[in-house]
Amino acid sequence: MESEVKPSKVVDARNTFCPGPLMELIKAYKAAKTDDIISLYSTDSGTKRDAPAWIKKSGNELVGVYDREGYFEIVMKKTK
């Protein structure tokens, strides 16, 4: 399934391990503007749960979690 929105920023954290991908996502989030779409690429299984949980808990919008070839993509929208 393709995500329908085009990300403003792609964080490619493939082949890095927990907590690296989530830290990279939060850094990108802090640098982003409201309504920016941030896409995180990761191969770390913990991140597949941790990143969506962080996105929801921080009050932002989880656009989707997509399985790609050999990695997954988590897409968020900065709403606050």
Binding site: N15, T16, G20, M23, I26, K27
Partner: peptide
């Protein structure tokens, strides 16, 4: 092999986040 950072580097990264 997997380029896992050492604990000080990891802590520095976390310091940039919060």
């Amino acid at each position: 092999k997997n380029n896992v950072p050492d604990w000080v580097t990891m802590l520095k990264n976390a310091k940039e986040v919060g």
